[in-house]
């Protein structure tokens, strides 16, 4: 009996076990679940609304699940919903967005990765000064540069076209992406770069054969960042393209907020989900990489 005090380390080890239903746990999980429900609610409401018919919406409750599931609103939102006089639905906007997003993502990532590589391994005199301007440029409200860019695009004949918008996205993606790539390339071991130099490889050979193959994760982060950012853009789409070329976000807004006709809330919500579907799928599939993209952007920028 007395022996237990002389050997105090033989007792139970590790942290004190907690009861699963302690007051602390009930409070903690209760709060978290309530908050999570608040965040999830709009997505749920969008879905159930888009699956109901209009009579059911008028009678019922936004939270109740649909009694009769109909996919008609989705079909209508995709191919028939009207903006003003044209009734092509969201499909035109979707394809415009695809045509804008793909080249913008590729172009901006190529330019920014080469640039970040130049800034980390081949620094020349004055490079840091331009980089500093670039980073500060990321803080300038877009409204300040809207009109000068209109003039520039008009000068080169790209104002109103998809190509012009691709260029705008490339320019405004440059600060964050360059920062992302520069920081990543700087963190790679310098011996690799030196060994390639000794073997006689030049600027482009080292980029293509050493740097890119080693940097696939950061390229993935950049793609996620750019696809969601460009897909979700509204301001540049509305300013730099003509109505035929409007991206999906702009056509969505025009469909839902058009003042003509009876409001069809189920079609509107189906259209809203359709527009959110691309970034949402990327988010749910990529998980931690998405978070990493945010964190990378947040570190200094």
């Amino acid at each position: 009996m007395i022996d237990t005090t002389s050997a105090p380390l033989t007792g139970p080890q590790g942290p004190k076990p907690r009861k699963p239903f302690s007051r602390r746990n009930i409070f903690l999980y209760g709060t978290l679940i309530t908050i999570a429900l608040f965040y999830a609610l709009p997505l749920y409401v969008m879905f159930v609304t888009s699956l109901k018919g209009m009579p059911e919406i008028r009678l019922g409750n936004v939270f109740s699940p649909p009694l009769e599931v109909t996919f008609q609103p989705w079909v209508k939102a995709w191919s028939e919903a009207c903006t003003g006089l044209t009734c092509n639905g969201l499909s035109t906007g979707f394809w415009n967005s695809v045509q804008i997003t793909i080249p913008s993502v590729i172009l901006s990532i190529i330019i920014a990765s080469v640039n970040g590589y130049a800034l980390s391994n081949w620094k020349f005199k004055g490079a840091d000064a331009f980089f500093t301007i670039l980073i500060f440029g990321a803080f300038i409200p877009y409204q300040v540069m809207l009109y000068p860019i209109v003039i520039m695009l008009r000068e080169v004949g790209l104002y109103g076209s998809l190509g012009g918008l691709v260029l705008v996205h490339t320019v405004f993606g440059m600060p964050i992406l360059t920062l992302l790539f520069r920081n990543y390339f700087t963190s790679l071991p310098e011996e690799l770069f030196k060994a390639a130099r000794v073997d006689g490889a030049g600027f482009w050979a080292i980029y293509a054969k050493v740097m890119v193959p080693m940097s696939l994760p950061i390229f993935t982060v950049a793609v996620i960042l750019q696809v969601t950012g460009i897909w979700n853009d509204f301001l540049f789409g509305v300013v730099y393209t003509s109505p035929d070329n409007y991206p999906m976000t702009v056509s969505l807004n025009n469909i839902v907020n058009s003042t003509q006709g009876v409001k069809e809330y189920n079609v509107n919500m189906a259209a809203t989900i359709l527009t959110g579907l691309v970034p949402l799928s990327i988010y749910f599939v990529s998980g931690r990489l998405f978070v990493r993209g945010i964190a990378a952007g947040a570190v200094k920028g």
């Binding site: 130049a118 020349f124 331009f130 301007i133 300038i140 540069m145 009109y147």
Partner: peptide, 26 residues
């Protein structure tokens, strides 16, 4: 280091013409 300078041209153009130039213009 000419390749590096060529690679940085888009950055230099963006920084000088769009960010600085555009802001001063406005």
């Amino acid at each position: 280091n000419i390749s590096s300078k060529i690679a940085a041209i888009p950055m230099i153009v963006t920084a000088l013409f769009v960010f600085v130039g555009g802001t001063i213009w406005t």
